[in-house]
Design a protein around this nucleic acid. Structure first.
Lengths: 244, 244
DNA sequence: CCGAACCTGTCACCAACCTGTCGTTTGGCC
DNA sequence: GGCCAAACGACAGGTTGGTGACAGGTTCGG
């Protein structure tokens, strides 16, 4: 019951002692029980899903601070759940549990947006420490993982919001996706065709290339006054640059 | 300053007759001594802070079952400590002590999320009874009595009641559940679909998405005049924000 | 059992906003 | 100057959200 109190020594930066809301997606009963009991004893709220379907249902209704996700699930790959969540913009920290030792899996997991992983069998205290660390990080900086900063520009990919020198920018969906494209190759040149492909899905064939120019103009207007600018390289494309 | 430091155990093994962990914030020595002695005799753990600063430090590191908070503090208003804690999401039951008899203070305290109050001079046995009641309620149902405060809005999830700047709001069931949804991700954007799923159970499939908009309008009307507002983010969702 | 008061969700219509096109202008480059 | 890519004001749908009016439904008192 007593533990090494390397957990107890909370950094006195931000005192938040609310219970962590955890979603556990795990089909192995004894592992699940141990985790539920362990966190429950500390006052945290653990929802337990045994299948991918259950997990999807819970995720549709409830927000969690951390998701503990088994990579092996009966009705679907844990990796695909991870990928789906990230695609939907859910930035909740996810810790993957895997019985496999293959490096491939770990790489795939981290690559698709997992924040941490643990190889079974694991020490419960280590799991607790890692989950708590993830929750703390998420609380301190709600969007740590998905925020791109560039000069005085800050873009939250998950929340679809952006700010310039601290002031919120109101961007439409298209403007935001343009900004994403520019940011993806910040400092580098990106051709109009590349931008086009990122802004419009392949079935929107009727849209003219001029649309990109229009949105460049609109974005430029909204970026005025900041320390970033969109420069044109005739015949080559555009480039996001920081100045001053 | 801690008068009893056996609070180091982080794991709240809630066996029967478990000691209550209390934070007492009080600068009057004789009152503080009486309280510390009284609870200490029953085996409860009392941390004593004489100033707001001390209280903040303790709260940053430690979780308590109940906070006893003097409304008069040398270096800051007890009310602001209360408000800060609630804003940070700390739902620990708080009992306010006040020497003033003014109704204003009581209303302000309850409005900002205090769970109970006692007017000085008080009977020690009454204080004990109330603290014990608060601790019991918090233990039994972590969500019961959990009051969410946001700006001048105060929402009692268990009691299904809400108030704005002290005045009671009469909300219908649906309006309340909408408010709950908005509050659950206060400050952050919540999509119409998410709101829909929180407002309607999965078998209410015949309800149109327009219903959410209707209730947004109705809630907005009832929130008029307060310091909170529901902002629309086109294509993204809604957001509860505090202003002024 | 009736009616009043209220809650609930739909519909229709309006307003605000987003989007992409057109046509014209600008400005670099030969 | 002439050419051409890019800029941009103006505009016409299209889409999304807001809201008044309304018709069942429910609750409650008498």
């Amino acid at each position: 019951m007593q533990s090494q109190s390397h957990l107890g020594s909370n950094t006195p930066t931000h005192g938040r002692a609310s219970p962590i809301r955890i979603l556990l997606v795990e089909d192995t009963h004894d592992v699940a029980d141990a985790v539920v009991t362990s966190f429950g004893r500390r006052g945290d709220a653990v929802d337990h899903a045994q299948t991918r379907l259950e997990a999807d249902d819970l995720l549709a209704v409830q927000r969690y601070d951390v998701i503990i996700l088994d990579i092996n699930l009966p009705d679907g790959d844990g990796l695909s759940l991870l990928a789906d969540q990230r695609r939907e913009g859910n930035a909740t920290p996810i810790l993957m549990l895997t019985a496999r030792l293959e490096v491939d899996d770990r790489v795939a997991a981290l690559d698709r947006g997992a924040d941490d992983y643990l190889v079974k069998p694991f020490d419960l205290r280590e799991l607790e420490a890692r989950v708590r660390a993830l929750a703390r990080r998420a609380l301190r900086d709600p969007d740590a993982g998905s925020v791109i900063n560039y000069a005085d520009l800050s873009v939250d990919l998950a929340g679809q919001t952006a700010s310039l020198s601290g002031a919120a920018l109101t961007l439409t969906r298209r403007e935001f996706s343009l900004l994403e494209a520019l940011l993806a190759s910040r400092g580098r040149v990106i051709s109009k065709e590349q931008i086009f492909e990122r802004m419009f899905s392949f079935d929107e064939t009727d849209v003219g290339m001029n649309a990109v120019e229009i949105y460049i103009a609109r974005l430029r207007k909204k970026l005025e006054g900041g320390r970033v600018a969109i420069t044109t390289l005739r015949g080559l494309g555009y480039q996001l640059v920081a100045h001053e």
